[in-house]
């Protein structure tokens, strides 16, 4: 990965359709920091046509990668170009990661109409969602009309990432009643479409009932599609694609999409601001003034509340 080429030039090349340039832009987005901020500004200025972004999430083992691969196939048959951001967790201990989603997408391996990028969480809780959001904007700026955001797991971070997409697909397997009950991170609330994958197994009907029970209380809960698929055989996948296209169009037409995007911007802004604040707070605490402040509080010269005011003042000032 080289940043020798000025970012603007790289951006222009990416916008012209150069895949290598796009790939490097995504690396810049992943790395965060000043360059990413610059890239963000370029994306905003480019005002590219909006892409349709779909989050695909669910517990490990649900078959998301296979399903995503199958969806790509259907999209391509419908002559749609699509990009995939496949996000996997990094090891919290070593910072490394094994990213294996591409393996299942070998049908798309040399298709010019598909772009697959593996992204690791890099242990940055808030930062990952930021990197993913920026990644989506970069892909959008480079002309990709459909973006699939595939995340593993159903923790807070994964749900947040999915929330950065226009529409969320939650993938379950038959017999996962407990998962539905547990409703981790509010997954049942964010889903726009449910998929019961591996639908050749037992327990499909019960799982469908469990889902319907869990979303009954949601406004518009009745309208949420629950689609059965057998991703390894491609069964149910055209129906899923159709549901995605239709739901997205409906959200757009009703104005809901615009509402969500604004909410997303607010969420992203808050998240990014908090992230930045956290950084500045740490720096302020570690700085000479911060250390002296702590000593003064410890020796009773200054109360905590006064200390907070001083610290915040320092942060704003610097």
């Amino acid at each position: 990965m080289s940043s020798a080429a000025p970012l603007q030039e790289l951006f222009d090349r990416g916008r012209r359709g150069e895949r290598g340039a796009l790939a490097r832009l995504l690396s810049v987005a992943e790395a965060g920091g000043a360059q990413a901020a610059q890239l963000d500004a370029l994306c905003a200025a480019a005002a590219a046509p909006r892409a349709r972004s779909i989050g695909i999430t669910g517990a490990p083992g649900a078959g998301k990668s296979t399903l995503t691969a199958a969806l790509l196939g259907v999209a391509r048959n419908a002559d749609q170009r699509a990009a995939v951001l496949a996000i996997d967790p990094s090891s919290p201990l070593t910072g490394g990661a094994i990213l294996g989603d591409r393996v299942r997408m070998h049908q798309a391996a040399v298709d010019e109409g598909v772009f697959i990028r593996s992204m690791a969480s890099r242990g940055q809780q808030g930062g990952l969602a930021q990197a993913a959001s920026l990644g989506v904007r970069v892909l959008e700026a480079c002309g990709w009309p459909w973006i699939l955001l595939e995340t593993v797991g159903i923790g807070q971070v994964e749900v947040e990432i999915s929330g950065r997409a226009d529409l969320v697909v939650v993938v379950l397997n038959p017999g996962w009643g407990d998962e539905i009950q547990a409703n981790k991170a509010g997954l049942m609330e964010v889903a726009d479409i449910f998929v019961i994958n591996k639908a050749d197994r037992e327990g499909v009907a019960q799982t469908r009932r469990d889902i319907e029970g869990a979303i009954a209380a949601r406004p518009g809960g009745q309208q949420i599609p629950v689609i059965e698929t057998i991703a390894t055989r491609g069964e149910g996948v055209p129906e899923l694609w159709q549901a995605i296209v239709e739901r997205h169009a409906a959200l757009d037409a009703s104005g809901e999409l615009a509402v969500r995007r604004r909410a997303r911007i607010a969420a992203e802004l808050e998240s990014a601001a908090l992230s930045a604040l956290r950084g500045r707070l740490a720096a302020a605490m570690a700085a000479e003034e911060g250390v002296r402040l702590r000593e003064r509080i410890a020796s009773g010269d200054c109360g905590i509340h006064e200390g907070v005011a001083t610290l915040l003042g320092n942060i704003v000032r610097d």
Binding site: S91, G95, R102, V103, H106, A109, V110, A120
Partner: peptide, 17 residues
């Protein structure tokens, strides 16, 4: 991975892939 690398596995692939 344990040494801190991100390892992208692609499986059995041709030269183009």
């Amino acid at each position: 991975r344990d040494a801190g690398f991100e390892v992208i596995m692609v499986g059995m692939v041709t030269a183009d892939e």
